[in-house]
Simulated assay, not measured.
Amino acid sequence: MDNFRTLSPRIADYVYAPRVYWNLSTSRLLTMEYMEAAQVNDLKSIQRLGIQPSDVVNLVSETFAEMMFKHGFVHCDPHAANLLVRPLPSGRRSIFGNPFISIVIFYVSC
């Protein structure tokens, strides 16, 4: 998240890594914050949330481009269980300028 805040501030509010509970984790078990969200490949759930699938595609593409070309650190396990989508808190504008549809992408496994 520090990389997004410092190197990619334009999208930093739209990318989220769940909190790690280090006191409940071991060298073999990572315990993270639970997130209610739709998997990135679950079109019907994304649409039920009022999110445009094209906004998800744009944000995922931009996020990975930022990681590859600016950060030099890339999420290397981007399957559907590790990329989740949810609406931002109401009233916030999306990165695409739409006042009604905002999204956050969770990087559950980093």
Rank of each mutant, 00 (worst) to 15 (best):
Leu43Pro: 00
Asn41Asp: 15
Arg28Cys: 05
Leu24Asp: 13
Leu24Trp: 11
Ser54Phe: 05
Trp22Met: 00
Gln52Trp: 08
Ala38Ser: 15
Val20Phe: 03
Ser45Lys: 15
Ser25Leu: 02
Arg19Phe: 10
Leu49Ala: 14
Asn41Thr: 15
Met35Lys: 12
Met32Asp: 03
Asn58Ile: 09
Lys44Gly: 02
Leu30Glu: 08
Asp42Ala: 14
Met32Leu: 10
Pro18Ala: 08
Tyr34Arg: 13
Asn58Ser: 14
Arg28Asp: 12
Gln39Phe: 02
Asp55Leu: 08
Leu24Gly: 01
Asp42Val: 03
Arg19Ser: 06
Thr31Val: 15
Asn23Thr: 09
Val56Gln: 04
Ser27Val: 06
Ser27Cys: 06
Ser54Ile: 09
Asp55Thr: 01
Glu33Met: 04
Leu24Pro: 00
Leu29Arg: 13
Asn23Tyr: 10
Ala38Pro: 03
Val40Leu: 08
Leu30His: 00
Val20Cys: 05
Ala38Trp: 13
Leu29Gly: 00
Val40Met: 09
Arg48Pro: 00
Ser45Val: 01
Pro18Val: 09
Asn23Cys: 02
Asn23Asp: 14
Met32Thr: 14
Leu30Ser: 08
Pro18Ser: 07
Ile46Trp: 12
Leu49Gly: 03
Ser25Ala: 02
Asp55Lys: 09
Ser25Thr: 03
Leu59Ile: 08
Ile46Ser: 11
Val60Trp: 02
Thr26Gly: 03
Arg28Gln: 13
Glu36Val: 12
Ala38Met: 04
Val57Ile: 12
Asn23Arg: 10
Val56Trp: 02
Pro18Thr: 07
Val40Pro: 07
Val56Ser: 02
Gln47Tyr: 01
Asn41Cys: 13
Met32Glu: 12
Ser45Ile: 01
Leu30Lys: 07
Asp55Phe: 06
Val40Gln: 07
Thr31Glu: 03
Met32Val: 14
Arg48Met: 14
Ile51His: 04
Asp55Tyr: 09
Tyr21His: 12
Ser45Asn: 14
Leu29His: 12
Leu49Arg: 11
Lys44Cys: 06
Asp55Gln: 11
Gln39Val: 06
Leu43Lys: 14
Asp55His: 12
Ser27Thr: 09
Asp55Ser: 12
Ala37Ile: 03
Pro53Cys: 08
Thr31Leu: 10
Asn58Met: 12
Ser45Gln: 15
Asn41Ser: 15
Leu29Cys: 11
Asn23His: 11
Gln47Trp: 00
Leu24Tyr: 13
Glu33Phe: 10
Val40Trp: 11
Tyr21Gly: 01
Met35His: 05
Val40Phe: 07
Leu43Glu: 12
Leu59Met: 10
Leu29Phe: 11
Arg19Gly: 01
Ile51Phe: 07
Pro53Arg: 12
Arg19Leu: 11
Gly50Cys: 09
Arg28Asn: 13
Ala37Met: 03
Gly50Lys: 05
Leu30Pro: 00
Trp22Phe: 09
Ile46Glu: 05
